[in-house]
Design a protein around this nucleic acid. Structure first.
Lengths: 358, 358
DNA sequence: TCTCGATATCTAAGCGCATATATCAGGTTT
DNA sequence: AAACCTGATATATGCGCTTAGATATCGAGA
């Protein structure tokens, strides 16, 4: 790791000035062919690798996008629990890997691919809750645009960062937050799902299981609206917690005890739904025989559990790609207004609602 | 995106010099409590976000590690084909996501987690074959250490880069390549597998299916050695191509035609193995009834196909984590020698070899 | 009272590159 | 032959930060 060569070294070796070296790389047409060749030869001979720090500083742009992964990866409070549940549901437990891509994985994949194809490098930052502010600020300083997952960063922090670079949150916008947004059509998805449950299956007693937040709220509203439209009673949200399958389990057990099972558990996301199904299975309740269960999101695991989960699939990879697209535009047009793009979702009917494989 | 505030702005607002601002952030003990508070307040008020470019330039280190993802993601020549094969083997085809984490995914996950927990950001670069040299050089300029997947970058390029920063390749070392390496104990894994096949199942006619490269060569050598030790005939490698299931299929069909099926196809990796199984299934040959098949790697898909694949599992997440560990050490001790670390593998006996679920 | 040592802060010099501006050679135009 | 381009290269400055060394301040010891 001897001191690495710089433009000065290359310039000296090629017998030109540093400006010429710089031009040879970034504006080849401005340099005579013969000198350009000489410069590139010298660079190769010396093992010259341009410093992105210097380049970024001089240019005012880094050429990288950022994705803040937070602690989704495996640092979730109950991550261990979730992993085990899901593994148990399908195959033998796995020691050292996440069996299926979850929501963030699929989105990240889209972000990654789209970034590369647009010539941006991708900087992924992460950290636990305690250090998240420092971590996100750190990566914000390294990139030209930043993507963050829903509800991972305090508004105050994102506001600060968005004064410097465009920031996109993968969630419904909250009022005047200064961020770009990519969302999905939660309402329409839930409506399609509800119509299926009410009309095809004739369910009347539905129960909404969820941790309350912006996304699930939109889903619950649609849930309520559909019921109301038909003059059906609207039950309150049954509150759960993400990944806290213990809580969900207890909840389900209580219902079992009181003998008041609904026709169908409409869960705000697939993870909830799978936790509910697991608990029911343990308690000897047949799904969908005695009670139906539906999810929302469309993660891979949902199609592999038994019975396969009826759900509403979000276009996760597309969400990641769209996020990149929006940011790249925002970078090139700093004065353009904030954009909010809503993507369609797709009802995926499998077997947990009572349908049978065709 | 008004011009973002710099140390100068913060310094002015706090009534101190830029050095004090810098110290307040990076060496808090060197400034009086009261001034530090004043500086931090000013920074917050202005929405100050330090520029990583400037910081990196001044410090000579960027605080980021790099991972070059190349085109593994979905740009592989036959990526579409592979995806379909695998999906077809287990569930309905999926439109826009990769169903299971593959080798690189699991390694990347380890890299990501370990980087974060050590306070490094992770820069992921990618590109197709054509632009790979530029892309890898680009990300090399942004990081303090670089991890590359096997056989993705020409030796000449890695050599150049490794003169500037430590570079680790996830493969067996080739002579004096100037890179750090994380490897797995291919030989031991293959030996364990072979002993199982020969002693438990009593197979005598084995066939090694592979694309030849450094990794699979080590596996083939162990394969040969075990056979030789027992005085059995050593068949030549049956050459295939990664992901080119068409080729593998043809190969298998030829064998079927000539009626010379072995007792067991020992495949150099899981993808090959699954392609072989698929072809056999299509041809109406029972696995493991008429012929056994084994893989190598231990990807998730292998446990979900039918029959579940007997294989040798690499500790992929650990490989990623180890790579980071080695690089971080190398960064702090630039003069230390190159390290090569070999990790253990684990024989995973499932059903494709003829064993039955216990 | 003067000196010395801490402590707190500041001054100033880069880090490696991009680029606006200046320079220069060689050819055109008038 | 003077004035004027044009293309190729050089000079010089600044990007925002870190940090070695200079300076200032204050109290303690002589």
């Amino acid at each position: 790791m001897a001191k690495s060569p710089t433009v000065y070294d290359v310039a000296e070796r090629a017998g030109v000035s540093i400006a010429t070296v710089s031009f040879a790389f970034s504006q080849p047409h401005r340099v005579k062919d013969s000198t350009r060749v000489a410069v590139l030869d010298a660079a190769r001979a010396l093992g010259y690798v341009p410093s992105a720090s210097a380049r970024g500083l001089a240019r005012g742009r880094t050429g990288a996008l950022g994705l803040f992964a937070f602690d989704f990866l495996n640092l979730l409070p109950d991550a261990e629990g979730m992993k085990k549940d899901r593994a148990a549901a399908v195959v033998a437990p796995n020691d050292d890997c996440r069996l299926f891509p979850v929501w963030v994985d699929e989105v990240q994949r889209g972000v990654q691919l789209e970034s590369f194809s647009r010539g941006y490098a991708l900087m992924i930052g992460g950290g636990d809750k305690a250090s998240s502010e420092r971590a996100v600020t750190d990566i914000a300083g390294r990139v030209d645009g930043l993507i963050i997952f829903p509800r991972t960063i305090p508004a105050e922090v994102t506001r600060r960062i968005s004064a410097r670079i465009p920031v996109l949150e993968l969630s419904e916008p909250s009022h005047d937050d200064g961020l770009h947004h990519v969302t999905v059509d939660n309402a329409s998805g839930m409506r399609q799902l509800m119509e299926h449950l009410l009309e095809v299956h004739g369910f009347r007693k539905l129960m909404f299981v969820s941790i309350p937040n912006v996304e699930t709220e939109a889903r619950y509203e649609a849930f309520s609206a559909v019921l109301q439209d038909r003059g059906l009673e609207v039950p309150p949200v049954v509150e759960s917690r993400p990944g806290a399958s213990g809580v969900t389990a207890e909840l389900v057990r209580n219902l079992l005890g009181s003998g008041s099972l609904p026709d169908c558990f409409v869960c705000a996301n697939d993870d909830e739904a799978m936790a509910v199904m697991e608990t029911l299975k343990t308690a000897g309740v047949s799904v969908p025989g005695q009670v139906a269960v539906t999810g929302f999101d469309g993660v891979v695991a949902g199609r592999l559990v038994s019975p396969p989960l009826t759900t509403v699939r979000q276009p996760m990879e597309l969400m990641g790609r769209t996020a990149v697209e929006i940011l790249v535009d925002a970078i090139s047009q700093p004065l353009a207004p904030l954009v909010e793009r809503q993507l369609p979702v797709q009802l995926v009917v499998r077997e947990s609602c009572g349908c049978t494989k065709t």
